[in-house]
Design a binder for these strands. Structure first.
Length: 519
RNA sequence: CGGGGCGUAGCGCAGACUGGUAGCGCGUUUGCUUGGGGUGCAAAAGGUCCCGGGUUCAAAUCCCGGCGCCCCGACCA
């Protein structure tokens, strides 16, 4: 778009800025060059392109299957929320007040040849484009819940929401985004709190076992809690630049929304009680997390479980006769791979050199490439190339490339493909863990803390904390860091467990918290 | 909201200071060539120069007004 973007130092291939040169620009380059999304002509809104949407669809499926397996059903509620309805839960409304899109008119009119808003079509009451759906959903729940027999009510919605953010970034923060929001109603607090934990576990499972992104689970501090919640649990991932990304949240809302929407039920003892609520959500932001955790300077890297294409086969030939034979073999191999549940694409485009195809599929993150040329036909082997291997210290680009490539007997390569996919899935998580651990420190003094977060430096810091809400602000202003979560005890590395003294105030602290710079 | 940048072919940009036939690279199309990491050659198609007004014989270019997007900060998933 601008001069400046094209003049960025580009040290990597394919017009992708290297991570070392400019991490933020690298991220945008990956999104664009891997064909995931585009800026639209609407400020802050993105167009999710087919390749990006295919990844989201796979993620949706993984999540939705788990929601169903834990007893939830899907439904759909309106996009618009009457202003008065949103205002009912005050704390909630205040939390979203600064980023709401508001519909005030319902008609256009041509005045002096110009299409404009018809001033006479003003709505009696403005409609808010949902920034989240608690209020409109609870207005319905009032009618659906009368007795303990109606509980628990376990509903999820796949939808788009709008938050008028001041600054946006593709996938990570856009004015409109896609997400799911679960909204459940329970008879008791303990049941609701169980639900909150259950769904956080689902998110963590998807993050680690589907996205291959390791996460830390914990509670948000009071200041970072969802507007209107009593407890917010979260999963936090670390991106390759050491910054934390909140990847999912699960809230215990207490009886706040039940009270403001007046949702009561008759319990077994025949008494009226307010229900206990939860809500939980993840969004297209997860696609951003995926990119920033795994990808490299050559493009996107996808875990097999989310890759729309697992294997791309490139036939190589000189003569028409060779073209026919290698392409036929490519098709045959594709059929056999598909029979094993592998998603295969045969790239038989003519007039494009093999190398160009390699670059393209690498950029798009396809986990495995198979090259089939005349020599492979003779030997009865396939050239199998992985998208990545776990890097070893001081390894050259050339050695890396060599380790990715293997010539494997045909039958063995085909039979072993599902296992190779599992291997890649596992190694990706392992690799992400190694990168995260490398940038994680147990820190006990403010000096060390400052040194760790100085400049662009970031990572996870386990520190003792006993400060107040105001003390959090001090830490935020001084170091640009925040408490990402108050971790569940089993989330803290063993060496970091146990009580100590607060890094800022010197007060006694029961356990460490997770500090980092955040997106 | 404050600071900066940009708007010209599908994409990336030059041209603007000094007004005078609308340019370059990539991509696309056609033909040949090439093919195990981005082949080369030739030809062709492709434009509301963001919008509106003004100055001028003449505006992408100068003047006035508007719109839009991007980046950096404060807010956030």
């Amino acid at each position: 778009m601008s001069n400046q973007q094209t003049q960025q130092p580009v040290t990597a291939s394919d017009g992708i800025t290297s991570r070392a040169a400019d991490y933020g620009q690298w991220y945008l380059d990956i999104v664009k060059r891997a064909d995931l999304a585009d800026h639209s002509s609407v400020r802050g809104c993105m167009v999710i392109k087919p390749h990006g949407y295919a990844i989201w669809e796979k993620l949706q499926r993984e999540l939705d299957d788990r929601f169903k397996a834990t007893g939830h059903v899907n439904a759909y509620f309106p996009l618009f929320i009457p202003l008065s309805m949103l205002a009912k839960e005050e704390e909630h409304a205040a939390g979203f007040a600064k980023e709401c899109a508001v519909v005030t008119h319902y008609r256009l009119k041509t005045i002096d040849g110009k299409v404009t808003v018809d001033p006479e079509s003003k709505l009696e009451e403005p409609l808010i484009v949902r920034p989240t759906s608690e209020t409109i959903i609870w207005a319905q729940y009032k009618n659906w819940i009368q007795s303990y027999r109606d509980l628990p009510l376990l509903i999820n919605q796949w939808a788009n929401v709008v938050r008028w953010e001041m600054r946006t970034r593709l996938f990570l923060r856009t004015a409109e985004f896609l997400w799911q929001e679960g909204h459940t109603a329970h008879a008791t607090e303990s049941e609701a709190r169980e639900e909150v934990s259950r769904m956080l576990a689902v998110y963590a499972d998807v993050a680690e076992n589907v996205m291959a992104v390791p996460v830390v689970r914990g509670h948000k501090t009071e200041g970072e809690r969802f507007a209107g919640a009593i407890d917010t649990q979260c999963i936090e991932g670390m991106m390759q630049d050491g910054k934390a990304l909140q990847m999912g949240t699960s809230h215990y809302l207490g009886q706040n929304f039940a009270k403001s929407a007046d949702v009561k039920f008759l319990n077994k003892e025949g008494q009226l009680e307010y229900v206990h609520a939860t809500s939980w959500g993840v969004s297209t932001r997860l696609v951003g997390a995926l990119i920033m955790t795994h990808s490299d300077d050559n493009g996107l890297i996808l875990p097999p479980k989310l890759a729309p294409i697992h294997v791309v086969i490139v036939p190589i030939y000189k003569t028409p006769e060779e073209q026919e034979r290698t392409t036929a073999e490519a098709q045959a191999v594709a059929v056999e791979l598909r029979a094993q549940g592998v998603a295969v694409k045969v790239d038989d485009r003519e007039g494009m050199q093999p190398g160009a195809k390699y670059y393209e599929w690498e950029r798009k993150g396809v986990p495995v490439r198979i090259e089939i040329g005349p020599r492979d036909l003779e030997k009865g082997s396939l050239c199998v190339v992985r998208r990545f291997v776990i890097e070893q210290d001081g390894e050259s680009e050339r050695d890396l490339r060599k380790r990715k490539k293997q010539f494997v007997p045909r039958a063995e390569a085909i039979a072993g493909m599902p296992e190779l996919m599992q291997t890649l899935q596992r190694e990706l998580l392992e690799r992400a863990r190694m990168m995260r651990d490398k940038r994680t420190r147990i820190i006990d003094t403010l000096d060390d803390y400052e040194a760790f977060f100085k400049g662009d430096g970031s990572g996870f810091a386990w520190v003792h904390w006993a400060g107040t809400h105001e003390d959090e602000d001090i830490i935020a202003k001084r170091f640009e860091t925040s408490i990402r979560c108050l971790p569940f005890e089993n989330q803290i590395p063993e060496a970091a467990r146990g009580p100590g003294t607060c890094i800022l105030t010197g007060q006694p602290s029961a356990q460490r918290v997770l500090m980092a710079k955040a997106y």
